[in-house]
Design a binder for these strands. Structure first.
Lengths: 331, 331
DNA sequence: GTGAAAGCGCTAACAC
DNA sequence: GTGTTAGCGCTTTCAC
C-alpha cells in the first residue's frame, strides 16, 4: 500500500487539509506546522497521487500530443518547442502516434480524451474533422499544428506554415533561374500540407505560363523511397530543368537517385526542396529550399495552449508562419 | 459537467455496476442490458474517466519515458519501437526530456511517479542512481535503456548496446586498415555509453600497441559542433591516420570540418563513426561505422516492460545488443 | 445476473 | 489558521 496524505497527516500530527495546503503551497499554514509536514513527507517517502488529485480538480496538467509519426524529426522538433514552453509551467506531454492512419487517430483521440488531458495538440492524419470539432466543442481545447483541414480553419486554434506561399516562392525562384520545365514530387494529398504546397506550385507555374506538357507530377508519400521512384519516372521522359521535392525526405531520395544515374545537380538539373536537406552543406552542388522552423512552430503552439488554458479566451487563435527561401552552396 | 457512469446508468435503467461491467467487457451481463448500456453511452457521448479508474484500480496503462532529448532521432527511434510493441496492448506513453540535466531528471522522475505510470523507461543523464534504485524498490518498475550506470547493472532491468565491444571492433578495423595514429572524438563521460566506447577504443589501441603519443583524444558532447571543434584541435598537430567519432553527430561535424580544410577523407585521413551518418551514401568516400539499431532496442524494451508487468517475474531482465560494423561506400 | 454501497486519495468548502 | 467532511467517477465486493 502506498503512503497517502492521511499517513503524512497522522505522522505530522495535523489534519489532511493542512498537508494538502502545504503540498499546494498555501500561505495560510504556520511555518512550524509546515516544516513538520515536510519532514513527515520526506520520512515516509510520500508522493502525491496525480489521479486522485485530478479527479478532484478536473485538471491533469497534461497536454496530449498526437502526431502522425513519433520518430519523424520534424514533429519531434515541434514537440521539443512545445515542451520547452510548457514544461516550465508544470505541464507534461503525453504522446501518441497515428501512423498517418485516420482510424488509429480516432482511437487515440478517444484514449487521450479519457485521460482528461487539459489540451490536445494534433497534427492530423485527416479524416477526423467532425470528431476533432466535437472534442473541442465538448470542452477539451484542441490546437491543430502543421496540418489544417480547410473545414476546421474557422473552428479550432491552429499554428501552421504558409505552405501555399512558400511553395509558390520556391517555384518562382526556379522560374527566375530560367527553368522552363518542372518535375514535381508531391506528398500524399491526404496531408493538407502536401495539398497546399501542390496548389502553391501550380499557381506559380500558371503565372509563369509554363505549359502543362512541361510539367510532370509524381504523387509520393513523403518518404525517401518515393523521391527515388519519382526520379525514375522523370527519367522515362525528357529530364525536366528543375526537380522540386515537396519535403526533404523525398528531396534526399531524388538526390540519391539522380546521383545514381550520374546526373549532375546544378548542371544537368536544378534541385529544390521544401525543407532543408541535412547533408546539403557537404554536397558538391547547391540546393534551394524552403527553410522550415519546426522548433519555433512548437513554441508558438505552446503559447497558444497557454493562452487557451489560462485566459480561456473567446474566438480562435491562429498563426500562419512564414518561411524564407534559402540556398545551401558548397563551401 | 461531464457525463458520468451514473448518467449512463440512469439513461439505460440499470445500476452503475452494470455499466462498469459492460465497459470492462464482463461476460456476466445479459445481452439486452448490455446493448441498452451501449446505446446510452453513444447517445450521451460518455467517455470513461481514466483518473477515477486508476484511482480505484491502481493501474494507469501508461508508461513513462524519460530521455535526455526528445528531439534526438536516436531516442525517438527507440520510442517508436517501444510504442509499436506497447500501444497494441493498450499502453500510452508519457514523455519527458531531461536535457542531459541530472537535476531536471530527478524532478521529472518525481512527476512521472506521481502520475503512477505502470512502468518507467529511462535513458538516464546520470547522477540519479540512488533515486532510480529507490523508485524501483518502491514498487514502480524501472527499465533502463541505452545508458547503464555500473552501480545499477545488478539492480534494474536494462536493454543496452554493447558499446565496449562495438567501439573495440571499430578501432580494430582501422588498425587492420593500417592506421597507426588516431584521433578520437569522445562523447560526454557522464553518459555511460560514451565512457564504455572510450574504454573499448582504448582496449583495442592497447592491444594494437599504439603508443600514447600517436593518440589524440577530444572530449566532446555528442554534438555536431564538438565534432568540428575536435578536428580543429587535431589539425594543430600532425593529422592522425584515422579520425574516429564516437557518435554520428560528431562524425558529421568532423566530416564538415575536414572538408572545409580540403582534406580528402579516405586519402588524407580515414573516418570512422559510431552510428550511421545519414548522408554517407552520397559522399565521395567511404565511412566505416557501428550500425546501431535503436528501433530494435526499443522493441526489446517494450518486451521487457510487458514481461515485468504481466509476469511480475523475479530477478532482473537484461539485454546487451550486439552491433555490426558496416561500411558505406560511394556508389 | 444485477444492484447497493464502500471506498480509492485528494481538495475545498465550511465550521470553528 | 486549522480541522472536518463531503464528494470527484469509478470498480468491486457482497447481498440478493
Amino acid at each position: 500500500m502506498d503512503v497517502t496524505i492521511k499517513d503524512v497527516a497522522k505522522r505530522a500530527g495535523v489534519s489532511t487539509a493542512t498537508v494538502s495546503r502545504v503540498l499546494n503551497g498555501s500561505p495560510y499554514v504556520q511555518e512550524h506546522l509546515a516544516s513538520r509536514v515536510r519532514e513527515a513527507i520526506a520520512e515516509l517517502g510520500y508522493r502525491r497521487n496525480a489521479a486522485a488529485r485530478s479527479l478532484k480538480t478536473k485538471k491533469t496538467n497534461t497536454i496530449g500530443v498526437l502526431v502522425p509519426d513519433i520518430s519523424n524529426p520534424y514533429f519531434m522538433q515541434i514537440s521539443k518547442g512545445l515542451e520547452d514552453v510548457l514544461a516550465p509551467h508544470g505541464f507534461s506531454l503525453i504522446f501518441a502516434s497515428s501512423d498517418e492512419d485516420s482510424r488509429k487517430e480516432a482511437k487515440l483521440l478517444r484514449v487521450l480524451s479519457e485521460y482528461r488531458v487539459d489540451c490536445l495538440v494534433v497534427a492530423t492524419a485527416g479524416g477526423n474533422d467532425e470528431l476533432l470539432k466535437d472534442i473541442n466543442g465538448g470542452g477539451l481545447p484542441v490546437v491543430l499544428v502543421d496540418r489544417l483541414p480547410p473545414v476546421l480553419a474557422g473552428e479550432l486554434d491552429y499554428v501552421v506554415e504558409d505552405n501555399h506561399s512558400s511553395a509558390y516562392q520556391l517555384v518562382h525562384h526556379f522560374l527566375e533561374q530560367g527553368a522552363r520545365s518542372f518535375g514535381l514530387i508531391h506528398g500524399p494529398m491526404s496531408a493538407t500540407t502536401a495539398l497546399e504546397r501542390a496548389f502553391g506550385c501550380r499557381a506559380a507555374l500558371a503565372e509563369g505560363k509554363v505549359p502543362p506538357e512541361r510539367i510532370v507530377e509524381y504523387h509520393g508519400d513523403f518518404s525517401q523511397a518515393s523521391g527515388q521512384a519519382a526520379v525514375r519516372l522523370f527519367l522515362q521522359g525528357e529530364l525536366p530543368d528543375a526537380v522540386l521535392a515537396l519535403n526533404n525526405s523525398m528531396a534526399w531520395g531524388a538526390i540519391l537517385e539522380l546521383s545514381k544515374h550520374k546526373l549532375r545537380i546544378g548542371e544537368d538539373v536544378l534541385l529544390g526542396s521544401y525543407g532543408a536537406v541535412d547533408a546539403a552543406p557537404l554536397l558538391p552542388f547547391s540546393i534551394t529550399y524552403v527553410d522550415q522552423n519546426p522548433r519555433e512552430l512548437g513554441e508558438r503552439v505552446g503559447e497558444v495552449v497557454r493562452e487557451r488554458l489560462v485566459s480561456s479566451k473567446q474566438g480562435h487563435i491562429w498563426h500562419v508562419m512564414q518561411q524564407k527561401l534559402r540556398m545551401d552552396r558548397p563551401e
